[in-house]
């Protein structure tokens, strides 16, 4: 039990980093009502850009900015594929994601894994396994600033028009809103945040890997769903809903470290995550089915159909 408890702070830090990525996914999945698979690629892009920039001697904050911009560009590509090429959002995301695999390898000069020596950079890195207390503070700072900025943005005229685009595109167009442009803006912001989160994770674990984003959309969805299930009744305000997604990420990582401590092989984790997400996505549907079955009837007819 002690080893589990001692792993908690690390799990919280890592969960918060994935929580930032879940906030990015929230924008496309919840606000625009689109499933964007670009994130599996753009998460790795963020990590790769950060490691290459930092190792090249760039200031860590500038390197974070570079990761953010790289993610925004990835989102721009998906947005253009979806709105200007008429490709369905899911397929547009998959295309960008596949392309990003090559792009990420290019960024890392053809290497599948690029280390960021923790010994050499330990005073520079914003978050790192070697200093979990500092990592927790930095994560809290990032989460607060990102949620504050998004809260402001989605309260503006433009932010409102993005929400209308996701909620009812016909109504949005009838009120003069360019739904195509708005979707692109959503993809850009979302993937920017995802790449930022990838940049943080690369620092935290001390390396960038071409596969580090694989399955991240599922983790993002898991965080959003867990946040919704646990805090949905309590958190009605938009900022709190975003915070719910971050908490969802943290809970996800605590549960992961718990099942690992129980002895689940690490290789089976993705299977478990997918099963949990499928289960929670299915619950609302089953609820309606059960409601149908339990209709109160008045006896009548000779036989039951």
């Amino acid at each position: 039990m002690l080893s589990f408890i001692s792993s908690l702070p690390g799990a919280i830090a890592q969960g918060a980093i994935w929580g930032i990525m879940a906030v990015g996914v929230y924008i496309t999945f919840k606000i625009l009502d689109l499933a964007d698979l670009t994130v599996d690629g753009s998460f790795g892009t963020g990590g790769a850009v950060l490691v290459v920039c930092t190792a090249g001697g760039m200031n860590i904050w500038l390197a974070m900015l570079a990761a953010l911009v790289a993610g925004c560009l990835a989102g721009l590509v998906t947005g253009v594929l979806h709105t200007k090429f008429g490709i369905p959002a899911i397929l547009a995301g998959i295309l960008t994601q596949i392309a990003l695999y090559s792009v990420n390898l290019r960024i890392m000069s053809g290497k599948a894994n690029l280390p960021l020596s923790v010994m050499k950079y330990k005073d520079i890195l914003l978050v790192t396994l070697r200093n979990i207390n500092k990592s927790l503070v930095v994560c809290a700072l990032f989460v607060s600033v990102i949620i504050a900025v998004l809260y402001w943005f989605f309260g503006t005229e433009l932010g409102h028009s993005l929400r209308a685009t996701g909620c009812n595109p016909s109504m949005a167009r009838a009120n003069g809103i360019n739904t195509s442009t708005n979707k692109i803006i959503g993809f850009v912001i979302s993937n920017g945040l995802v790449a930022l989160s990838g940049g943080l994770l690369a620092q935290y674990q001390g390396f960038a890997d071409v596969n580090m984003g694989r399955g991240s959309i599922v983790i993002g969805l898991a965080a959003i769903i867990i946040g919704d299930v646990v805090f949905g009744k309590l958190f009605k305000n938009f900022a709190l809903k975003l915070l719910g997604a971050v908490f969802g990420g943290i809970i996800y990582y605590i549960v992961i470290s718990f099942v690992l401590w129980l002895g689940l092989p690490a290789n089976d984790l993705k299977m478990l995550t997918a099963a949990v997400v499928a289960l929670f996505l299915g619950i609302p549907y089953w609820k309606s089915k059960i409601a149908e079955k339990s209709i109160k009837q008045i006896p009548g007819g000779k036989t039951n159909a």
């Binding site: 943005f153 309260g155 503006t156 005229e157 932010g159 409102h160 009120n175 003069g176």
Partner: peptide, 18 residues
Amino acid sequence: ENMALASRRGQVRGLKWA
């Protein structure tokens, strides 16, 4: 929020409060 969206029909939507 719906009414605010409609009241800006035909205008550029910027970063002012909605």
